[in-house]
Write a protein that binds this DNA or RNA. Sequence first.
DNA 1: CGACTTCTTGAGGATATTCAAGAATAGTGG
DNA 2: CCACTATTCTTGAATATCCTCAAGAAGTCG
Lengths: 232, 232
Amino acid sequence: MRRCHDCPLNLLCQDDAAPAGDGGDACLRQRCVHLRSGEHLFRVSDEVDHYLHIIRSGDIKLYQHGRDGGQHIIEFLGAGAWVGLESLDEHQRHAGAVALTDCEIASVPYAMLIALLDRQPRSAEAFGQLLSATIARHQQHAAMLRSTSAVQRVAQFLLARLAQAHGMARATLPMSRQDIADYLGLTSSTVSRCLSALRRRGWLAMGQRAFTLPGLHNVEQVAAGAPLALDG
Amino acid sequence: MRRCHDCPLNLLCQDDAAPAGDGGDACLRQRCVHLRSGEHLFRVSDEVDHYLHIIRSGDIKLYQHGRDGGQHIIEFLGAGAWVGLESLDEHQRHAGAVALTDCEIASVPYAMLIALLDRQPRSAEAFGQLLSATIARHQQHAAMLRSTSAVQRVAQFLLARLAQAHGMARATLPMSRQDIADYLGLTSSTVSRCLSALRRRGWLAMGQRAFTLPGLHNVEQVAAGAPLALDG
DNA sequence: CGACTTCTTGAGGATATTCAAGAATAGTGG
DNA sequence: CCACTATTCTTGAATATCCTCAAGAAGTCG
């Protein structure tokens, strides 16, 4: 069983707030939920239950219904990420969360977090960092969407997945092409074409779900705006 | 002079924290800065000074340098908005802030805010709402950027400006076409074309800086994805 | 009033989408 | 374990959309 020092919650769970002999997992008395691939953590229009969720393992997609009926992916979230921050002051959820793989998820009552912030000196600072990091992530996503070229967006997406994997040379794509397309503001056809173009050049190697970037440097240049013909 | 109850800071400045006889403006001891149109509040790569800013009047744009050299607009901020949240745990600013019109801006030391959060019970909740609202705003922007059609994005932009104006029928466009383009991921030519197309149909009426939407219903349909030819 | 910038509008070319069909994969039940 | 079905992925050709380049109009500021 995991202990406090690798618990993602330890950002807010420092020093005196972590009772050593409390039995390992219960440092913030979170309950643990298991989700199978395809199951929902919550749906759009669900009533907000005032729980915050932290992903211990697995991948989740956060989505919204676009005005045109299509699905818009807000974010892909992996191990260590917080889910539910976007609905703190809402009564109804305006986003849904689905498991892309089997997941293990810890849930904390929002009220408990608030109490902790009011009680523990350094936690407010940690919360500020959380806010700042969240904003930075959304700004990065927006920058991706503003890139004019399709390959450019796909390249940036691959690099972001890789960076998220703690500097490993290997990352996963647990989501469908349609999901990637909805995330990048493209169509699944175009995503496919871009991936094929990178593979054909030998810059991208893909297995079932995992990929590596043998041509990392080239992919970075494409992400920076270097032109690349889709057929060739 | 404004008093506490219309001060944007009163979100975090409640009850006992607001000394009544403190002389009006100094409830959180913020200093006030005046900016002329075009002046910077801070620039990219500036050292973070650990102040948070709140816009009392005027409009500001928050921008970033894109990898391709072009300017990317992160957000347009109006009266009541907070500036600087995105740099709380950074040493260098990764975004710049410029006044689009003459501005009046209140600044609060970040440390004072943190102290307030640690001291005052209900302020943590208020901070949570701030976080939630900020995330929601970025998600809305992302949804705009994912819209495939250019008119659709422009229509959504106009509606968002209108909604931000507290339900008034009239809103302003203090930024240049190039700024709008950089915000929506388009070119200034295309923005111009889209605005002209809406004007030609009588759905949009524009003065120098202000606009109204006589065809509000139609514009909403365009924002929802209804097709619209740019020439016609 | 004149110089400057910003905005509008045009025509041509590049790029992503649409529509569609075949290939690969995943999931199910025998 | 294999066959069968359903879904997802890939790829092609044609169309629509947006961008580039450019010049004229309108607005801004001294």
